[in-house]
Each structure stands twice: as structure tokens, then as C-alpha cells.
Design a protein around this nucleic acid. Structure first.
Lengths: 192, 192
DNA sequence: CGAGTCGTTGAACGGAATCAATCGTCGTGG
DNA sequence: CCACGACGATTGATTCCGTTCAACGACTCG
């Protein structure tokens, strides 16, 4: 997780959320920064038009609300999408430690840059219209390695922006074509 | 741009690229960090399967290769998609200054966090299947404000992941429905 | 003045979303 | 401990809407 190396310096606590339970609500003062340990957290923004929009779904190992590290209020709400476990860090404490330890700040910087890179990659993967191409591109990139290996197929489908049914079907086609191999829910590209 | 506040401290130079010209190539040693001033830079990765994949398109005000701030070699190639102007910073110099100025590092951190937030938002916008919904969601978010206001409609279409023809048509429909107003290429939501 | 690109519209096709039903598994509570 | 409910994985059928191909005018830039 993002703050792993600070884990022994930073005080933290773990909390458990039931599916549907809120972690924080849009407009709340930012007191804490969180990291998903298990399950998933949906970030939702209430727009002025009424219809709330989904901003992001954070899975295990993902930190949320880092952007809030520099803002007073949460700009969105966070709800558990399933039974979820999150680690809680104090925002002020985190900021203080970062200021005192340039090395750890540099480290956070590093992690953020790779996060940006991954997000860009994912973004472009989503722009691919053909289901086969999209899946192949996803599989051939590194941003999902390890991280996504234990994600349910359904969630992977959502992550790359396609209906899960289409994802299943596409996997089957690619498997029949010999492009991929898989046992249970572990998928591997065949070529090299 | 990302390093704006360092602009007077950091030495920099501006270079001009013709459409199709390369800024750097995958595998090159990372000597510089860049920021697009005008035009656009396409980041492309050559995969082992042969087919190169588009990773990202960077427009004006966007920095590229920040991820490379921490790596030895570029993991992708950068090509001008049109006549383009980029600002060049020395990687080593930038790193040194960041280490010496915790405040500027903190500032970069801040900009990266908002970048992450924007990317996530864009990501979810791309996940919306309905063209109308997608466009409305895009227009109702802030991540594009100012930044995208001068982008050609064609590029906006690509940014949110739809064919430009569909984008034009959708805009027309929304305009007829009174959901949006526009003069020339400036679009505005009508409600509040 | 011509090449290139953006903006726009038309027509047609195809593929992905959607709706729906089934099976298996896992966790949970009675 | 077992039954029930929730959810993931899968497959089928259908519909529709967004992509694609194509053509044209306007504008800019060199």
C-alpha cells in the first residue's frame, strides 16, 4: 500500500465496514486518509443536477482521498461496496511526518508518479473499442500485475470498462484462439 | 504547468518538434523531464507482440515522463502528434532542487494528487456507455475546466473515448434538448 | 493557392450492452 | 449443521446505438 513504509512510524487503526456503509460523506472535514485493506470502496460525487456519479472504485492496497491531503473537505463520498476493511491514518500526522522526512515524501512522490502512469495506461486501454484488443492490451500491460491477480473477473471487466458478460465471452474466444491460457480465474498470455 | 513555480529556479529550454518527430525513444536514458507547451505529444509503447500501443496523449500544460523521474530508461516513446513545443528540464537538476526544497516537493505532491483525482474521474467518465450521459458527465466535472476549454472538439471526443462523429451528434442532440448551450466551440451546461 | 485538418452530416453495419436464466460457492444466521 | 440468500461465473437471445466509412464545406497555415 501507499504508506507501507510509514506504517511503523504512523499510528493507524483498522476499521470494518459492512456493504453499503459510509466511510465519509461529501463535505465532511478531512481528518483522515485511508487505505483499503480488503474489499472495495466506491467513491461517489453528488452533482448539482442530482444524479450522483461514480468517481472511482478503490480495491485492496489502494489509498483513497490522497487528493484530500491538501483540501479541507472531502469532495466526494466513500461507501463500502462490500464488506470492507480499511486502515485509517491521521491526515495531520501524515503531513507532519512527510514534512519532517524528505525521503518519505520523495517515496510518496515516486508512488504517485507510477500511479499516474498506470492510470494513463488504463485510460487508454479503455479507449479501445474492440473487446478482444482491449482485453489483450490489458493483459499485456504491467499495471495490473500482482495487484489485479486476485480480483474477481467481474471487477476486472468493470475496471477496463466493459460488461462482464462480454469479458467472459471474450476470454473464451481468446482461449479458443490459443492467445491466452487460464486455470480457474488466473489468466496468462501465451506468447512469451 | 506542473513545474511552474520552479520555473525561475530551474534552467529550462524550449524545443520545437514537427508532427511525427520523436522527443525520445523507448529505452533511452532518462536525462530530461518535459512539459508540453503547445500541441500534443503521443506516448507509445512498443510491446513484445509487435503492435505498439498508445499510452497517453499529453496536451498543453501537461508534463510527461514524471514517472521517469525515478527510472533510468524511458519505458515508452514520445512523438509529436502535430507541430509541438515542449519545455525541457534536466532530470538531475529537478531531483536535486526537490530534495533541497521540501516545500516545492510538497507542492509537486499536491499537483500529482489532483492529477490522480482527475485521471480517476476521467476514467469513470470513460466507463459510461451512453454517449449522452458520458458527455453530460464530462461537462459537469471540473477536471476539464480551463484546461480543455481550448481543445478542439475532436480531441475532447478522443479524451472521453468516443468517435468524434458521435461527439458532434451528441452535442447537437443535447443542444436541441436545451441541456447545453454553445457558441462556436465553447460549450456550457444550461442548468446552474 | 493548395494541403491539411476540423467540423458536420449521411448511411449502414456490426458488435457490445442488455435482459434473462442457470449453476456453483461461500458466508451467515437460525 | 444445514438452509437460505448473495454473489460470481457462464451462456443464450435480442436489440440498439455507437463505430465506421464516406463525402463535403470552411478555415488556417505555409
Amino acid at each position: 500500500m501507499i504508506y507501507s513504509e510509514l506504517h511503523n512510524i504512523l499510528s493507524s487503526k483498522t476499521i470494518h465496514l459492512k456493504s453499503g456503509q459510509y466511510l465519509f460523506t461529501q463535505g465532511d472535514s478531512v481528518k483522515n486518509i485511508y487505505c483499503v485493506n480488503k474489499g472495495r470502496i466506491k467513491l461517489v460525487r453528488d452533482t448539482f443536477e442530482g444524479t450522483p456519479i461514480l468517481i472511482h472504485v478503490a480495491y485492496a492496497e489502494e489509498s483513497i482521498a490522497e487528493a484530500s491531503l491538501f483540501s479541507k473537505k472531502y469532495h466526494c463520498s466513500a461507501m463500502a461496496g462490500t464488506n470492507t476493511e480499511v486502515i485509517v491514518y491521521s491526515k495531520d500526522e501524515l503531513l507532519k511526518i512527510l514534512q519532517e522526512n524528505p525521503e518519505s515524501m520523495m517515496n510518496l512522490l515516486k508512488q504517485l508518479t507510477t500511479q499516474v502512469r498506470d492510470l494513463r495506461m488504463l485510460n487508454e486501454t479503455k479507449s479501445i473499442y474492440s473487446a478482444k484488443e482491449k482485453v489483450l492490451t490489458y493483459l499485456s500491460t504491467e499495471f495490473h500485475r500482482d495487484k489485479d491477480s486476485d480480483l474477481p473477473l467481474k471487477d476486472i471487466a468493470q475496471k477496463i470498462g466493459m460488461a462482464h458478460e462480454t469479458f467472459y465471452r471474450t476470454l473464451k474466444i481468446l482461449e479458443n484462439n490459443g492467445k491466452i491460457k487460464r486455470n480457474k480465474s488466473h489468466i496468462k498470455l501465451t506468447n512469451l
